[in-house]
Design a protein around this nucleic acid. Structure first.
Lengths: 150, 150
DNA sequence: GCTAAGTAGTTAAGCGCTTAACCATAATTT
DNA sequence: AAATTATGGTTAAGCGCTTAACTACTTAGC
């Protein structure tokens, strides 16, 4: 072996990187649960997140804002909205004063979709998180908050 | 609005789901830092993880084991190994007794690559985690551990 | 020993996202 | 007012992963 210390270096991870990799691995597993839920209903997690974000706002938002809130590119939002509109879950209207913008709204079908499936999805997530008690959840939120501001 | 409670339901998240979404969001940002590092060096995070996993094991592993360790499909490992071999970072040998298997080993070029770049990558990660002190990192690891076994 | 079932790895098709280039409209500069 | 720059949105190409179908080999059962 050309670098005799390399294996040692790879194995002896400082606490920082251990926590990082544990975070990545654990989160991946949890996300999988939620994502599989939507798949099992023939739905698409990303598209659902669009509807949820619209609901949070009261029903309507611009695509660009939506993209920022969800954390995807404007190109991707564009692609997400197409099937949502085709399926009748959102409605697209042109902005009254600014011709570049368009206003996206959840339709009642979209709301119905959330109403039908969101509670079960959240229940599935809660199930996976139930190994932490209330105090531990607060702790976790606190630690994540610290990590995020930075 | 057809479901007057829906916005309230969407907004009033129980602690469980709050923690879940915070986990997802925070982790995504952290991963991005590491991933961007590799990209900035013209390298590929997933391929690097293959090399790291090989090093952890002492240098050699079967593709199938590698896939499990990294958490990807065997199809994907197959695709990851092709460019790694072309670039001379791994070597592929046929298994001495079992003709189906092949043995993957890191070359000294592969080791050199890790030796050159891994420390800086880990340093970048540590930088992003530095808002937590040692005790908090232990706390985080503990909480993640509880979440994972379940 | 031969057939059937299982396992390791590859390949093809497809999905979800990204970046980059583009079009249309709006705002800013002069 | 005209020209420039900026912004919102769409489209095209490409990357990284997945599932599913396939090939090659091995193991187990009769």
């Amino acid at each position: 072996m050309q670098h005799p210390n390399l294996q040692e270096f790879v194995l002896d991870q400082p606490l920082h990187t251990q926590a990082f990799f544990s975070l990545v691995e654990t989160t991946a597993k949890l996300v999988d649960v939620s994502e599989k839920y939507w798949q099992s209903k023939g739905l698409n997690g990303a598209r659902i997140r669009v509807l949820v974000e619209l609901m949070k706002e009261g029903g309507s938002l611009l695509p660009s804002i939506l993209a920022k809130r969800i954390g995807v590119t404007k190109a991707n939002i564009s692609l997400l909205l197409i099937p949502l509109e085709q399926d009748g879950f959102i409605r697209r209207e042109s902005h009254p004063v600014d011709g570049r913008k368009s206003v996206i709204s959840v339709t009642s079908e979209g709301q119905q979709l959330l109403f039908t499936h969101l509670p079960a999805n959240r229940e599935g997530i809660a199930e996976k998180m139930k190994s932490l008690d209330e105090q531990e959840l607060h702790q976790l939120l606190f630690l994540l908050h610290k990590l995020r501001r930075d």
